[in-house]
Amino acid sequence: MNTQPILEVKGLHKSFADHHVLKGIDFSVKPGERVAIIGGSGSGKSTFLRCLNFMETLSEGEIWVDNERIGVEKNGRITYPEKQLCSVRERLGMVFQQFNLFPHMTVLQNVMEGLITVKGYTKQDAHAVAVRELAKVGLSEKHDAWPGRLSGGQQQRVAIARALSMEPEVLLFDEPTSSLDPELVGEVLRVINQLAEEGRTMLLVTHELGFAYHFATKVIFLADGVFHEVGTPDEVLKNPKKPRTQEFLRRFSEFAF
């Protein structure tokens, strides 16, 4: 079995102006791993995920994808050629909290877009892939709908289909259910779970601790800009060793019944 990491992070720092959000993170993902990243709001978990596919520029540190260092060193400074970033983003699919579907395209066109403009597929080939991926997320009847006419849960499933269509090596989920009405959360989590069963490599930033427990092979508790506690779901979510993790989980269980 291939145990080379797909994605590696070394010494990652990220600051916004004088706000130091990520303070030195080392991390790697191997094929088939499913990592849930939890932590309080403002802890930097979304920022961490967004640094991986360069939605945010790194303040310091290195990102390696398929054993290739991203960025080119020129006169002692790291630059990131657009071509390389596009290729990284193509390999690391992302699903956003706010879906970010293209409102001027139908559901089908949304899924076909990347295939045509990035992968250079013909319309027919792109169409076939889009039909297949939309069937997988249970939206075969919505091909010609405008995204604005769909429920939040349906929009998020289209966004997942759009990311899947690119056949990414890793899927990054940035709080995919946080902007959904509670009754719509389930349909999205079921789709993510189905992807887990296929053995896909995934990183999930979430507040759904129950789902994280069942979904993840590894759980990371992020606090104060560092990985405060890392382990299996049982270790981190059921028997956390660090007081900070315990306290975070206690707040979640306060109103459990």
Binding site: C86, G93, M94, E113, G114, R162
Partner: peptide, 28 residues
């Protein structure tokens, strides 16, 4: 910003994003 990010995340180049995603919406 989400529209830029949605396109970037697919691996679209700046110019593809402009012509396919941003400008068509901006025109209206």
């Amino acid at each position: 910003r989400g529209q830029w990010e949605g396109g970037k995340a697919l691996g679209m180049t700046h110019s593809a994003l402009m012509t396919r995603v941003i400008v068509p919406q901006a025109i209206s």
